[in-house]
Design a protein around this nucleic acid. Sequence first.
DNA 1: TGCCGAACCTGAAAGC
DNA 2: TGCTTTCAGGTTCGGC
Length: 330
Amino acid sequence: MPELPEVEVVRRGLARWVRGRTITGVDVPDPRSIRRHALGTEDFIGNLEHATVMDVVRRGKFLWMPLNMSSPAGTGIGSDPATAFVPGGNVPKVALMAHLGMSGQLLMQDPDVPDEKHLKVRIRLSAVNGMPEQLRFVDQRIFGGLFVTSMIPTVDGGPGGLGETPLPEIAEEASHIARDPLDPFFSFDAFYRKVKGRKTGLKRALLDQSVISGIGNIYADEALWRSRLHYARATDTLRRADAERLVEAVKDVMNAALAAGGTSFDSLYVNVNGDSGYFARSLNAYGRAGELCGRCEAIGLHSVMKREQFMNRSSYTCPVCQPRPRNGRW
DNA sequence: TGCCGAACCTGAAAGC
DNA sequence: TGCTTTCAGGTTCGGC
């Protein structure tokens, strides 16, 4: 399942292939994957054709490609995105937005590669020697999707997200979410204020993208395990030191996952070249129900990881080093 | 206003 | 063997 590290792996791969290239054609074999584009398939295609991809930017699990709409068809080849943004000039007004959902994949393919079983959108790119000519959106469960959205100024004046040429603009549909822990402009104080202001459980807050973005079920469990906190801990009882430990754990686990190319349990997550990541082998909590807690075992304790139902999902904890708080409070 | 749960969706695995 | 049920989970939206 793509969470922040997996989306960042995809972003880096995509940036290498699509920056500066012009979209020459678009097919939408399954319009369900563009259902968030309210104006329909024709409008979606009309917005993309002849536009030049300026960059690939990410905030949390949202990924977008700012588009230069002013380029005549075919002139995007070899243009330099770093110099394409002229203040007050051809600043991108729209972006192609992507969310991978549960099973979305953005793949670079040559035209002669047969269509994937769950191919939803095909974007043809201007020809460049040695580069694949199609960007394909493949999605088995259709929780993800593509749509065109406006670019708007960021509230804090900082870059909208992580990209190769950061701009003080953000895709409108991503403007409601908080900065993610790997964002250089991430503010611990802002995160702590939001968490303390909530009256809910800690894991629910971690999964709330308006509090902190990029965290899904897997890395929430891993970060809570690393920081020895229980998912049901009431957020308004969280001490500053606990929150600092938690944020550091989130950063550590995400950086480790990024270094391993992401977490893959099956073929549902792959990078733009179709390769899987290896971080699943390093998980300490997620999916380890019935196994011994590695941290407790290291000090001679025999505690068995347990799985509980939470928010229609599974949560994995160690009952010894992550004790459940009484009534959510310590 | 803010929290919470349902719904969306498909394929693999388990159960019968 | 084949059918049915369960499970996986990110985001949005409606109900409370």
